[in-house]
């Protein structure tokens, strides 16, 4: 089997969002969050590991710049709540970091890079349920690529990206991959369903499969 490493690095993938566009999308989402939550008095941003975490931090920074006060943000690992654990060898568990304010009574905005089947968000809602009782839960994603398998929608979307199910969407982020980009490319062969998030460098590869 030939390993065509470069395929993932762009020769067959094309960038649909570059750094500045991602910046603008995040700035817009930050303003939308403030508008929708009427000033964001008690919001907590929780990034879904791994791709959602840097995005949650960036959103928190942008909201802080606008409102001039600190916005609690954290990370949510949903490995133990996945519905496909039995389909692959045991996965490494990540760290859940909840800010000191907790989630009880807060408006929690879940942040992820790609919204696809909706199964990651379903798992995140379950994980959140075990951590406390938020007043409300909202969802912000950088890319919505469609093909939902569950009744879940995003409240804030960076970009709606019509895709074929066979295509592959990869989000690259400065914090994890050294540069910002959203790439779309042909499907990778997934014989045996290797653990996809860490498979070929891209962090947010269709995070919710």
């Amino acid at each position: 089997m030939h390993a065509r490493k470069h395929a993932d690095d762009g020769s067959q993938s094309r960038a649909v969002l570059e750094g500045p566009e991602i910046d603008r999308a995040l700035t817009r989402i930050a303003h939308e969050v403030l508008e929708r939550t009427k000033g964001g008095a008690d919001i907590t941003l929780l990034g879904i590991r791994t791709g959602g975490v840097p995005l949650a931090r960036r959103l928190a920074e942008r909201i802080e710049q606008v409102e001039n006060r600190s916005i609690p943000w954290g990370a949510l690992d949903i490995t133990m709540y996945r519905d496909d654990l039995r389909l692959a060898p045991a996965r490494a568990v990540g760290r859940t970091e909840i800010p000191a304010e907790g989630v009880d009574g807060r408006v929690v905005v879940l942040v992820d890079d790609v919204l696809f089947s909706g199964r990651t968000v379903r798992a995140a809602l379950d994980a959140l349920n075990d951590l406390g009782r938020p007043r409300a839960v909202q969802l912000a994603v950088l890319v919505d690529r469609g093909h939902r398998e569950l009744p879940i929608r995003a409240d804030y979307v960076g970009k709606n990206l019509p895709t074929s199910v066979r295509e592959n969407v990869t989000v690259r982020l400065q914090e994890l991959d050294g540069h910002d980009a959203v790439l779309i490319g042909p499907a990778r062969p997934r014989a045996g369903r290797a653990p996809e998030e860490t498979a070929t460098g891209g962090t947010g590869t269709e995070a919710d499969r």
Binding site: R86, A88, P89, A92
Partner: peptide, 14 residues
């Protein structure tokens, strides 16, 4: 127990 029982049974992945 997680590493032995949660996956497809083919051992631990990375």
């Amino acid at each position: 127990l997680y590493l032995l029982l949660s996956g497809s049974g083919s051992g631990t992945g990375n």
